[in-house]
Measured scan of single mutants.
Amino acid sequence: NCLEGLIFVITGVLESIERDEAKSLIERYGGKVTGNVSKKTNYLVMGRDSGQSKSDKAAALGTKIIDEDGLLNLI
């Protein structure tokens, strides 16, 4: 459970895995996936064609922004 207690938001199109697979992977390792960035969000996983508003909010809140490889490296 290397992601225990961590909260993730996924945005954009992921290249190597589907969004549902990424969500399942995060949950399997103890993390939680939500739909919107908040002060409780630990990581924003940004894929291709992701919206600017979520990354702006993450930056404003100090949320770590990672890509798909960054997510896989956490596991």
Rank of each mutant, 00 (worst) to 15 (best):
E27Q: 07
L14D: 04
D67P: 02
Y29A: 08
S38H: 04
S24L: 12
L6P: 00
D69G: 12
V45W: 02
I17R: 10
A60E: 11
E4P: 00
G35W: 08
K64W: 03
A59M: 13
G35F: 08
V9H: 07
R28P: 02
D69V: 13
G12R: 00
S53N: 12
N73G: 08
G5I: 01
V37Q: 01
N73I: 02
L71Y: 00
G5C: 03
G51N: 15
G62Q: 04
E18L: 01
K23Y: 08
I65D: 04
N1F: 02
G35K: 15
A58P: 05
R48T: 09
L44W: 07
T11D: 15
G35S: 14
G62C: 05
K23R: 12
K23N: 05
G62F: 01
E68S: 09
F8L: 01
G62D: 07
L71Q: 01
G31I: 01
T41R: 00
S16I: 08
A22Q: 04
T63E: 01
L72K: 09
A59Y: 11
K57R: 12
I26A: 00
Q52I: 15
L25E: 01
T63R: 01
G51Q: 15
E21M: 06
I17Y: 15
A22M: 15
K64H: 10
I65F: 05
D49N: 13
E21R: 11
R19G: 12
T41I: 04
L3P: 00
L6E: 05
S55Q: 14
V9W: 00
G31A: 02
E18T: 15
D69S: 12
C2H: 14
A22F: 05
L74M: 13
V45L: 09
G5K: 04
L25R: 04
C2L: 08
I66M: 01
D49Y: 11
Q52H: 10
D67H: 09
T34S: 13
L72T: 04
D56G: 10
T34L: 12
S55F: 15
R48N: 08
K40M: 08
V9F: 04
L61R: 07
G5A: 00
Y29N: 10
N36W: 06
K23T: 11
L14G: 06
L25N: 00
E68T: 14
K39I: 12
D56Y: 10
S55R: 15
E27N: 06
D67W: 01
D20A: 12
S38Y: 04
D69H: 13
E21D: 11
L6G: 01
K64M: 09
C2N: 05
V33D: 02
R19N: 14
S53E: 15
E4W: 01
G35T: 15
E68Y: 14
I17C: 11
N1G: 09
E68L: 14
K64N: 08
A59G: 07
D69P: 10
V45T: 01
G70F: 03
L14Y: 03
E27C: 05
V9M: 04
G51V: 13
I17Q: 08
N1D: 07
T63S: 04
L44S: 01
S38W: 00
D56I: 13
A58Q: 05
G31N: 00
N73Y: 06
L14N: 06
S16Q: 12
S38A: 03
T34W: 05
A60F: 09
R28C: 05
G12M: 04
L44M: 08
V13W: 11
L74H: 05
L72S: 04
K40H: 10
L14W: 05
R28Y: 06
E68V: 14
S53W: 10
Q52W: 10
I75H: 03
